[in-house]
């Protein structure tokens, strides 16, 4: 467990100070970049909402942290169905009399889970494929890149629909379907970047002192392409969330975990889209804001990765 320290730290204290310094230099990127700051702020807000969405009970302390949802997302209101916003239900109710705001808050979690897991896995696979492909070259490169080409030939959403129809609608299967496609762009970009690093003297000298392939790839080359990996991770979060929302909107979402896309699907199947604006707009705006925040952050990272963009400003 790491501890947060707000007081200035003497450089002599070592690791913690270095760590904070590192974070500080990374955050400097966002200085003077309004879009990036807005993106970070929105993302952190969603993170907090997602974490504190439902009540927690810490048993050994006998402590319950209340959740943010005013009602149980599945509970039916005493009042009525399709109620417009009121004090008790700030965003109204659904056709089943459920509280829209509570569903919206609970849905944040699904978005966070899909976004982070799918992006992490996709970028993890993509970076490794790109790294191995470029480093070894020859037939390894040929085989891996032909596989990447083939994946580029598969239409994203239709493939995800078919795969989820086969494996069943669960969050895990949706993430698998997204990852199987999403790794391709990272693989291509990392490969071309590694190709240029492979020629540089530092790799040659590492080889000369007898470093192993694994060591050269992961200790020497990887840190140099890592900023690019982060950039693609940010975009991958956005695409993964859009893909999950689209799948859920089409009715292939996980029936046990209500996501924002599924809320809109419910509005559609209830034939309430014409009147129930309070039910259809909040989840749509939430999806848009979330994806916007990661794209804004991605734009800021892009300027770090590609210094030419900075000079053009």
């Amino acid at each position: 467990m790491s501890t947060e320290r707000t007081s200035p730290i003497d450089s002599a204290t070592g690791a913690v100070g270095d760590g904070l310094d590192y974070v500080r230099t990374k955050l400097e990127v966002f200085e003077g970049d309004r879009l990036g700051q807005i993106g970070l702020a929105i993302l952190v807000t969603f993170l907090l909402i997602g974490i504190f969405a439902r009540p927690y009970t810490i048993e050994f302390l006998d402590l319950t942290i209340p959740g943010l949802t005013p009602h149980d997302p599945g509970e039916r209101a005493v009042g009525g169905r399709l109620e417009s916003p009121s004090a008790d239900h700030p965003l109204g109710t659904t056709d089943m009399g459920r509280d829209v705001l509570s569903q919206l808050i609970a849905g944040t979690r699904v978005t966070l889970i899909v976004g982070s897991l799918a992006a992490f896995m996709a970028v993890f696979i993509g970076t490794n494929v790109g790294l191995v492909s470029a480093y070894f070259g020859g037939w390894v490169d040929d085989v891996l890149m032909r596989i990447t080409d083939i994946v580029y030939g598969v239409p994203f959403l239709p493939f995800a629909i078919v795969l989820v129809a086969i494996l069943g609608s669960s969050l895990v299967n949706i993430i698998v379907a997204i990852v199987l496609i999403l790794w391709r762009s990272t693989a291509r970009v990392i490969r071309s970047q590694v190709l240029s690093h492979k020629q540089r003297p530092y790799v040659e000298s590492a080889q000369a002192i007898g470093a192993s392939h694994t060591r050269i790839m992961y200790r020497h080359i990887l840190p140099n392409v890592l900023p690019l990996t982060f950039l693609y991770a940010a975009f991958a979060v956005g695409w993964a969330v859009i893909a999950e929302a689209s799948l859920s909107f089409l009715g292939f979402g996980d029936p046990n975990m209500l996501s924002w896309g599924e809320m809109i699907y419910n509005v559609y199947t209830a034939n309430a889209i014409r009147e129930a604006w309070w039910w259809v707009f909040p989840p749509g705006i939430a999806i848009m804001l979330f994806v916007m925040s990661v794209f804004f952050i991605g734009r800021t990272l892009e300027e770090v990765v590609n210094p030419e963009l900075r000079h053009q400003k």
């Binding site: 956005g238 859009i242 929302a245 689209s246 896309g261 749509g284 999806i287 848009m288 916007m292 794209f295």
Partner: peptide
């Protein structure tokens, strides 16, 4: 212009469709 294009890019197709539908059709 950059902000507007990024916002358009952040919106899933179905969401843009629903907004247009609500405004121009309903």
């Amino acid at each position: 212009g950059i902000v507007v294009t990024l916002i358009a890019r952040s919106s899933p197709e179905f969401w843009v469709g629903i907004v247009l539908l609500s405004v121009f059709a309903f």
